[in-house]
Structure formats: structure tokens, C-alpha cells
């Protein structure tokens, strides 16, 4: 059950200074850029997929509003259409940036995921904590050749999904995660 590369006596070693633990953890580098971590970006095709979805959701009402405004000539409808158009433009600007901000990194013992521009977050999921891995792809994603991989731990709060992986990479990552998880699995 214990990992072969970690003999037991190490238990207390890294916590050398229990009296002054507050001083110990301090990282000088950027908080969302751990040292020695090379982030793998997700596929830019994810941006395409998300834009298509957004275009449908916003474009159809926009079209409807424009038609209605042209027929009726009401100023309010034109304003509404303008609002939706601005929203669409904002989404078109935002989504590629969001996708570029997403990334993951496989470290020796855990998987790192990060996302977000305004609200940034970075999740550390130890391989030994993974209970199962989901790979899923909708029709649009399949068309674009991407898939998402989601990791599940015993906690439903673990928000560890990687969207927009190229299909081959998703399969590789799934197998990699499964084998690493098995090697390090340690109860709950």
C-alpha cells in the first residue's frame, strides 16, 4: 500500500521545524507559477467549441431581436439587440483568453490544474487520492477532436476537470493517471 520509492522513516523529515511552521512555507515566485512546473496548455480548439455554443445561445436571440426591431421599428428592441451584440463581442474576446489561461501539469506525485483570469485557481490532486477518472466528449467536441478528462477524489469538492484535450492526449492522460493512481492508492 505504501509507495516503493518512499521508505517509511521519512515521515517526520520534511517537517523539520514544528516550532516555527509559519516561517517555513513561503514561495518567492508567482503564486500561480510553482517552480519547475511546465504547464501544458489545452487545445485552442476548445475555444472554437465554446464559441460555437455561445454563438448559438446568443446569436439566435440576436437575430430574432434584429428581425423584430426591423419589422416594428421600436427603439427598445434595437437597444436590446445592441446589448446582446455587445455581449457576444465580449464573449468572443473573453473565451479564447480563458482557454489560453487553462493548463495542467503532471508532476511526479500529483497533477496540477489551473484556470481563470479574473478568478484564478490552481488545484493540486495527488495521484494517490484519485478514485476514478472520467473521459467525456460531446458531439461538437468529437467533431473537433477534443475531449475532457475529469478526476474524482473522495471529495465532491475537488474541481479537477481538464476540458479541451486532444483525443489522443486525453486517452494517454487517462491511462497515465489510472496507472499512477493505482501505484499510489492509499485508502481514503
Amino acid at each position: 500500500m505504501s509507495t516503493p520509492d518512499l521508505p517509511e522513516p521519512v515521515v517526520a523529515a520534511p517537517v523539520a521545524d514544528p516550532d516555527a511552521p509559519a516561517q517555513a512555507p513561503l514561495r518567492e515566485s508567482e503564486p500561480f507559477e510553482p517552480e519547475g512546473v511546465a504547464w501544458t496548455p489545452v487545445s485552442p480548439r476548445l475555444a472554437t467549441a465554446r464559441l460555437v455554443v455561445n454563438a448559438i445561445w446568443l446569436g439566435v436571440p440576436l437575430l430574432g431581436l434584429v428581425v423584430a426591431a426591423a419589422l416594428s421599428g421600436l427603439v427598445g428592441l434595437w437597444i436590446g439587440a445592441g446589448g446582446v451584440a455587445v455581449l457576444l463581442a465580449w464573449v468572443a474576446w473573453l473565451v479564447p483568453r480563458q482557454v489560453r489561461a487553462m493548463g495542467y501539469a503532471e508532476r511526479a506525485d500529483d497533477l496540477l490544474l489551473r484556470k481563470g483570469i479574473l478568478f484564478r485557481s490552481m488545484v493540486v490532486v495527488p495521484y494517490g487520492r484519485m478514485q476514478y477518472v472520467d473521459v467525456s466528449a460531446g458531439p461538437l467536441a468529437r467533431q473537433l477532436g477534443i475531449a475532457s478528462v475529469q478526476l474524482h477524489t473522495a471529495s465532491p469538492g475537488t474541481d479537477a476537470s481538464i476540458d479541451g484535450l486532444p483525443a489522443a492526449e486525453a486517452a494517454r492522460l487517462r491511462d497515465q493517471l489510472a496507472s499512477r493512481g493505482e501505484a499510489r492508492l492509499a485508502g481514503l
Binding site: 521519512v10 517555513a24 510553482p34 506525485d109
Partner: peptide, 25 residues
């Protein structure tokens, strides 16, 4: 933010080491 980032780094290591030394089920 630096303390928080350091804490995440350290805790990942600590958790791993503690798991390795944890008792059997």
C-alpha cells in the same frame, strides 16, 4: 499570496509523505 502558495506546495508534500507512512486499512 506567497504564504498561500508556499502552503499549497508544502502541504502537497506533507500529505504525500504522511500517506506513505499511514497505517494500513
Amino acid at each position: 499570496e506567497r504564504v498561500a502558495a508556499g502552503l499549497v506546495d508544502e502541504q502537497a508534500t506533507r500529505a504525500r509523505v504522511a500517506r506513505a507512512g499511514a497505517g494500513p486499512e
